[in-house]
Design a protein around this nucleic acid. Structure first.
Lengths: 220, 220
DNA sequence: AAAATTTTCCAATAAATGATGGAGAAAGCA
DNA sequence: TGCTTTCTCCATCATTTATTGGAAAATTTT
């Protein structure tokens, strides 16, 4: 039998799925404490008790949202990995950055929710999902920062996390940065992508060149 | 006559100052909606109405906190700028990153509050302070990304913001990243600094070399 | 020391918020 | 069609939260 989340995903028109989608937006915009079950229900256009009927209490709904975006993100990362497999590093980075920023700009609540979870604490105890470490290790491997199997160094994980967080920043911070820079959406998004390329690619490329110099490794 | 904030800063033992300090910590940890006046008062060990007596309503207090950390940050940036003035780019970046990370790790609520303001929306309307654009421009100039006076390009501002946000990330995300990487505080902080150097310095240095190649400029 | 002031706390209020019970509508099934 | 199950809403409750009035305590001023 399918889990509640799978069920909600199967039919995006179902009430469960519509509530989940609204919850993503509202939790993403205001954070856990800033979002209220009333606002979410209002966003869907239903009574508040219908929401409770489908999802249990606020914590349960929030957990479902976190799980849902985490799942989405995993899929997207898999898509990226498939696309960049076998290419040289600079190209891998270029494509990966482009695909990830495009994806995240289309689902802004993902970046928001992830960053809010990284940075701010909730007064209710909520269990962590442990997918992030796996994600980070996966990315590190597909970037050639670690062997295809075996452990990934802390150093590599931190570099990957720094890169991911930088992307989230420009997506989640769009409203703020745009008001600061006074640009329209299209310009901003294109410039954000460019800035990310500027900031992140040279570090990894240069690192690879140096490692190649001292200990030659094969790179397609 | 001194403003309320200046007054609070003058005597750190004053009730006003103690409340402000607690508010920084609590707002920083839980965000605007997650923090309650009760928790803040409790943190100081006073009755909740004493808090209202000194700072007015919750919004006022929050504004004061934002203003306060913004002010702090400005001072720190001035200190950094003084220190790095006249040095070559790579060294400037190295010192600036070190000083900023050290400072922010000692005042973790600063990074938290700044990022929360960038990313999440408050349901209460709160006025923005407009110091960030000035900060960004100042940093851009002191990094040689723009002339000593005259306007700073959007491109340069975005690069600077990306750099600043990256630092905030590793500070505000310490708890999360440490639990993910399973390291102690000292190791983490040192590795975070190293990672920031790794990620950020090559981009700017390489950029300078390229610009020097096409249009030679003097750099001390 | 008496008076004036500032500061602090207790108690209370109004509004917002998370959550539920139960009646009726809608949908599935016999 | 009638019966059962699922779903939705209204009304309501308990708790939390922001906020205030006013008395008592502490401090300053005269």
């Amino acid at each position: 039998m399918p889990s509640p989340l799978q069920k909600a995903r199967q039919d995006p028109e179902s009430m469960k799925a519509r509530i989940l989608a609204a919850a993503r937006r509202i939790f993403g915009r205001f954070g856990f404490h800033g979002a209220t079950t009333r606002i979410i229900a209002q966003e869907v256009g239903i009574d508040i008790s219908t929401l409770y009927y489908h999802w249990g209490d606020k914590n349960d709904l929030y957990q479902a949202v976190i799980y849902d975006i985490s799942d989405d993100l995993g899929r997207q990362l898999a898509r990226v990995e498939k696309k960049i497999h076998g290419r040289p590093l600079a190209e891998r980075l270029d494509i990966a950055l482009g695909m990830m920023t495009d994806y995240l700009f289309e689902h802004p609540e993902v970046s928001n929710l992830i960053l809010l979870r990284y940075f701010s604490k909730t007064r209710a105890e909520l269990t962590w999902d442990h997918k992030v470490p796996e994600f980070a290790s996966g990315i590190a491997r597909s970037m050639g920062l670690a062997g295809e199997d075996g452990p990934v160094s802390t150093e590599a994980k931190m570099r990957v996390m720094g890169m991911m967080m930088a992307i989230y920043n420009f997506v989640a911070g769009e409203e703020f940065l745009r008001s600061m820079l006074d640009t329209d959406q299209e310009t901003y998004r294109s410039q954000a992508k460019q800035t990310l390329r500027f900031l992140l690619i040279p570090a990894f490329v240069q690192d690879q060149e140096q490692r190649r110099g001292s200990a030659p490794a094969d790179d397609t």
